[in-house]
Write a protein that binds this DNA or RNA. Structure first.
Lengths: 137, 137
DNA sequence: TCTTGACCTTCCAGCTACTGGAAGCTGTAG
DNA sequence: CTACAGCTTCCAGTAGCTGGAAGGTCAAGA
């Protein structure tokens, strides 16, 4: 049994965040020592590591909550997890496409600004470039 | 002069958001008609379009506020905008790299789940795959 | 004239996933 | 005895909106 700081060290999740997870019900209320301190064991560390890895995979906390609920009841949530993974991949791909377009547009803007001579930069102003009407989705 | 709904239609920014922008000082307080309704003109539409395009370029609202403050004072904020653009491009590139890694990891997870036969899926559970220790940054 | 419905107003609350800070208790080392 | 790290709770804030309640305004139609 160890305290929240050690759990934090084992999992790389801050104590603040651990308490927050408990507060929102993602973690079950921790056992308390005689001094009122939260006490954890390896099971807790494993559960929190699961959460951390799922978070690193960009799962939302409520998705993780649902997955853990399945897991707690001993039901393998394969289909559910698979569909969540699928949705997430799609969402990430779209986000990447948007960001790439965005990056291109910003780079074009930046290049346009760079190509101006110093004094013209002061007059022409990149704001002007932003002001030109373009269709952003 | 037109109402908030028309400004919304002209710019593609929702009335809610327009009021919010006014509330946080991104838009100056609108003139009011005799009925208390906000009244706008083309200048307002242009300013809001500027904001919308800057937002589409992923500028933060406080960055836009600063840029507009320069613009309002007639000072072309070229250097400032250029540095903001530069920072933003960097940030976007890094975000894209992270998302691509994430996408790859999820795809691997998904493929692993797909390769299981139907009944094994029910037993082996993709959760197990998430549980395997890997180093996510 | 009355009613309907689409506008508009304000204010309050909530979303995600935390994070910061205050005020105070506990435990250990010097 | 005192310092200091670590723990507790609670309150509030972050970004950028969005939803909803409760109510005022206005034009068109029966």
């Amino acid at each position: 049994m160890f305290q929240i700081g050690e759990l934090s060290a084992k999992t790389g999740v801050s104590p603040k965040t651990i308490r927050y997870y408990e507060q929102i019900g993602l973690l079950l209320p921790a056992k308390r020592g005689g001094n009122g301190y939260r006490m954890y064991d390896d099971t807790d560390a494993e559960r929190l590591n699961f959460i951390r890895r799922a978070r690193a995979l960009d799962f939302a906390l409520d998705e993780i909550t649902e997955i853990l609920a399945f897991r707690d009841r001993g039901i393998p949530p394969c289909k559910y997890v698979m569909s969540v993974i699928h949705d997430r991949i799609d969402a990430i791909q779209e986000r990447i496409r948007n960001l790439e377009q965005l990056s291109d547009e910003l780079a074009a803007l930046y290049d346009a600004g760079q190509r101006l001579p110093e004094d013209a930069q002061m007059r022409t102003c990149v704001c002007h470039l932003i002001q030109t009407e373009t269709n952003y989705p």
